[in-house]
C-alpha cells in the first residue's frame, strides 16, 4: 500500500510543479490582457516583445486554460477516487478551491462570450470581465498569505 502512496506522492509533486508553472503563465498572459505591458516596459524586456501582442497572449491564455481545466478535472477525480483516503484537504485548500472555482466559472463565461452568436447583457459582460480579474487577484493574495504561513493544500490523514 505504501508503494502506491509513494508513487502517487511523486506524481503529485510533479503535477504541483506543473500547476505552479501553468498558473504563472496564466497570470502573466491574463494581466497581459490589460494594456499595461507596453506602457510599463515589460514588452521591452528582451524575449518578451510578444507580450504586447494581445492576440498572442490571448492564444497562450486559452491554451493554458485548456491545460488547467484538464489538470483540475484530473485532480478532482483523483482526489475523489484515491486522494481522500491518503490525505486531508486543509482549510486554506478549501479557500483556494473556492477562489479557483470563481476564476474557472467566470473564465468559462468569458470563453462563451467570445464565441460567435453568444451575446450577454452589458451588465453581465462587465461583471464576468471584472470578476475574473478580481478572483485572480484575490487568489494570488491568498496564495501569498498561505505561503507566508506555510499552509499547504494537504495534510496527512493521521496528522
Amino acid at each position: 500500500m505504501k508503494t502506491y502512496a509513494r508513487e502517487s506522492a511523486a506524481d503529485r509533486k510533479w503535477l504541483k510543479r506543473f500547476y505552479i508553472m501553468l498558473f504563472a503563465v496564466m497570470a502573466f498572459t491574463g494581466f497581459g490582457q490589460m494594456p499595461i505591458f507596453k506602457r510599463y516596459y515589460i514588452a521591452d524586456v528582451p524575449g518578451l516583445g510578444w507580450s504586447a501582442d494581445y492576440y498572442k497572449t490571448h492564444y497562450i491564455h486559452y491554451v493554458g486554460a485548456a491545460l488547467l481545466l484538464g489538470l483540475l478535472a484530473y485532480w478532482m477525480v483523483d482526489y475523489l477516487l484515491t486522494g481522500r483516503r491518503e490525505f486531508r484537504l486543509t482549510g486554506s485548500a478549501y479557500v483556494r478551491i473556492a477562489l479557483l472555482a470563481g476564476i474557472v466559472i467566470t473564465g468559462i463565461f468569458r470563453v462563451l462570450k467570445n464565441l460567435p452568436d453568444v451575446v450577454f447583457s452589458p451588465g453581465f459582460t462587465m461583471f464576468i470581465d471584472i470578476a475574473h480579474l478580481g478572483f485572480m487577484m484575490v487568489y494570488l493574495m491568498a496564495a501569498l498569505i498561505f505561503l507566508i504561513f506555510r499552509s499547504g493544500w494537504t495534510q496527512g490523514i493521521d496528522d
Binding site: Y55, H58, Y62, V63, V111, N114, L115
Partner: peptide, 11 residues
C-alpha cells in the same frame, strides 16, 4: 477570433 473558437473546443 477564429483561434478562440477552435481553442474553446479544446477546453
Amino acid at each position: 477570433m477564429a483561434h478562440a473558437d477552435n481553442l474553446a473546443k479544446a477546453m
